[in-house]
Amino acid sequence: MSIFSSILNRIFPQDHPANSGSGATVAPAAPPSATPASAPAATITPSTVAAEGSQPTAVPIPTVDVEGVLTKMQEGNGEQLNWRTSIVDLLKLLGLDSSLSARKELATELHYTGNTEDSASMNIWLHEEVMQKLAENGGKVPDDLKN
């Protein structure tokens, strides 16, 4: 299991779509091309419009109050952790490995392009990216936690 999936599993309820394995969006997939470049353009008729309109609509992802969940976890934790700005403390609060090697692995997983030897810069980026990814997966994350 990826580190980011472990983060999702600790914050989101087990029945949340983000925990289904396919719900986590670490890297967005490129949308499939509707028609190959060499194919002729499709003709739109009233019947094709009606058929397209009858496709099922996407079910919205239930929202999880990330700040609320983490605040409640902090209240039950004897150690005072600064999870709002520190990726190390966030991982500790979630009961996950916060070692440098684990953070480097998470950076690779989330496609960090900076120097992983500059752990301060990497840590700042990781915290912002994790919060952004939580929001993308149905988490309600205040703007001040995303940047």
Rank of each mutant, 00 (worst) to 15 (best):
N9D: 07
R10L: 09
I11Y: 08
D15T: 08
N19F: 06
G21L: 09
S22A: 05
G23F: 09
G23C: 10
T25F: 00
V26M: 08
A30V: 10
P32C: 02
A34V: 07
T35D: 07
P36Y: 04
A39V: 00
P40D: 10
A41M: 13
A42C: 08
A42H: 08
A51R: 15
A51E: 12
G53Y: 15
S54Y: 01
A58C: 07
V59Q: 15
I61D: 12
P62E: 11
E67Y: 09
E67F: 11
G68L: 08
G68C: 11
V69I: 12
V69H: 10
Q74Y: 02
N77Y: 09
N77Q: 13
E79M: 12
L81N: 05
R84C: 03
T85Q: 13
I87M: 15
I87S: 07
I87Y: 01
V88I: 14
D89C: 10
D89N: 11
L90C: 04
K92W: 05
L93R: 03
L93C: 05
L96I: 00
S99E: 03
R103D: 07
R103G: 01
K104Y: 06
E105L: 10
T108D: 14
T108P: 05
E109F: 05
E117D: 14
S119Y: 13
A120C: 01
A120Q: 09
S121Y: 08
S121F: 04
M122K: 13
N123C: 05
N123E: 13
N123Q: 11
W125G: 07
L126Q: 12
L126H: 01
L126D: 02
Q132P: 01
K133I: 04
L134S: 03
A135C: 06
E136W: 05
G138F: 13
V141C: 03
D143I: 04
D144M: 06
D144W: 03
K146I: 04
N147H: 06
